[in-house]
Design a protein around this nucleic acid. Structure first.
Lengths: 188, 188
DNA sequence: GTCTATACCTCGATAGAC
DNA sequence: GTCTATCGAGGTATAGAC
């Protein structure tokens, strides 16, 4: 099932992009890593953007799923924990993609359609996490809390021996800690 | 003093890079924004890397300064607060550079000499923040804490009406919270 | 210090044979 | 489904006149 050329291309693309960034990764190099030519790669993916989108899609899908119905969800400390937990799970589940996504957002500026939903999703998360009638501090903390989650990426690079479960629980606690210092959130 | 061509180039480069990313910003576009040609730009900067390095240097200098003598500094909750405070100040002071630096690290992979010291500095900070005999959790939290600081960048985009002072204090508190300052470190 | 002109490369993408 | 060959655009960088 995973032995077709398309999967090989994805795997190779992940490696090359992780090492050189999205812009720095050329289709020629990816094709060579697979053992085919650039032209053959185009048989499987219509464009570079098509390929990159295919790599990001599983992550975006999971993020969208984790945040489904967020806007209708009433804000409460308990709900915050659930939402953040789901979000962290989604990110960790695709942490290999997340690693280079987070470090390459600038380079992905030209891939607007791919990034559009990601920005929309994180934006909604920021807005909801900040709670009702948020102060400027609340809003900064909401962003900072999700930034902690983005720390999965750096973590996997720096402390590479951390198992998913540990990463998961530590990040959730850390993220909640950031929000907790606000005026109202509290419960665990 | 700031009216020479070199300064003009730097300013223009900052704008273009902020808008299009490091790779996406071409020297032609930067030169045109200044009102000179590409060739003239090469008179002032030997290469693109040379120009980018010049833009990053003030930030790196300030980071290096903020972390000077870190390794000899004994770890304590009070010291953590001081170190993080200095580090946050340095980042905020150059937040315009930091915004695109953080979003473009992947694209900067080819600029190894520029990134080398930045990685070395943040690596030392991670190591020191984790404290003596750190557990895996401590190390993850150390990384996450600095990731919060990196959140300055995202913050300035999302909540753009935040003054430096507010940003500074909220990030310091949030960062300390991540480090479990609540449990083993004292407050201010 | 700034210009015009250009060399040289790599990229993404396409055409068409097999 | 994979190949060779090539296109056009755009990049960095250089040479040499002014």
């Amino acid at each position: 099932m995973a032995r077709d050329t398309k999967s090989d291309i994805c795997r190779a693309a992940m490696d090359v992009i992780a090492a050189k960034g999205v812009e720095g990764a050329s289709l020629r190099e990816i094709a060579e890593a697979v053992g085919i030519t650039k032209a053959s790669l185009y048989y499987h993916y219509a464009s570079k953007q098509d390929l990159v989108s295919a790599l990001l899609m599983p992550l975006v899908d999971d993020m969208r799923n984790a945040l489904a119905g967020l806007d209708q969800r009433p804000w409460s400390p308990a709900a915050v924990r659930v939402v953040l937990s789901d979000f962290i799970d989604a990110v960790i589940r695709h942490r290999d993609v997340g690693v280079w996504l987070a470090r390459d957002i600038g380079a992905l500026a030209s891939f607007e359609d791919v990034l559009g939903e990601i920005f929309a999703l994180t934006g909604r998360l920021h807005h909801w996490l900040a709670g009702p009638d948020p102060t400027v501090e609340d809003r900064i903390r909401a962003v900072a809390a999700t930034e902690v989650v983005g720390g999965v990426l750096s973590s996997t690079l720096t402390v590479s021996d951390a198992p998913d479960q540990v990463l998961r629980s530590v990040l959730l606690e850390a993220s909640l800690d950031v929000l907790k210092a606000t005026s109202r959130a509290g419960a665990a």
